[in-house]
Amino acid sequence: MERKAVFANPEALTDDLTHYCPGCTHGIVHRLIAEVIDELEIREITIGIAPVGCAVLAYNYFNLDFAEAAHGRAPAMATGLKRVQPDKVVFTYQGDGDLAAIGTAEIVHAASRGENITAIFINNAIYGMTGGQMAPTTLPGQVTTSTPFGRDVKLAGYPLRVAELIATTSGAAYVVRRMVTKPATIASAKKAIKLAFQAQRAELGFSLVEILSSCPTNWGLSPLEALEWVEESMAAYYPLGDYKVIDEVKSLR
């Protein structure tokens, strides 16, 4: 009997091994994006924008044209790239510090303008790259290196729910929240990423897929425990769901 590979490295990923920590779900999301790009056959017209944060080196892992943005400015950079070549597919890949703290203005206005780009938003409730400080999405009570007594909302304010916020903008076409904790949720996240890219291809406006992700290293948990924490703690504060899906996007399904 002949045997055939039914699952291997997508063409839109390079062979490089990522620098991400063991069990970090950045790698899963990278692969999902690459699979979607392969399936839509858009690798040669897609341009990615990497953030500042753990995914700062994302451009090394995608076999695509890629730019590296200043912290938080990826949506502005994506706007510039897309406006001068609207036939291309442009996406940003941003973490919670990048998108929801320093880059809040850029993401909100890109969404509000209905900028025809896609943002893949990795929410892992912590600053990974700088070593585990409080993120805008750090949960109340969560211990980080800059909330050593747990996030006190009286002192540090409340976590920001990005998908809900972006869904209020008129220019957003598709805004959902997913997680990548087990094969079923991973499959759901992939479908969402695919629909976001399809919405952009159909010129329907701004799309954002928020993905609850794990940071075992900075959470001080094993990779498997970290996924449990995503499902039990993060998903409780950040409910999965479709926050805005305009009719034209629904019809793409």
Binding site: R3, K4, F7, A8, T18, Y20, T25, G27, I28, R31
Partner: peptide, 9 residues
């Protein structure tokens, strides 16, 4: 997370 597994059928 690391595309370390190739699956064959």
């Amino acid at each position: 997370p690391d595309v370390a597994i190739i699956v064959y059928r």
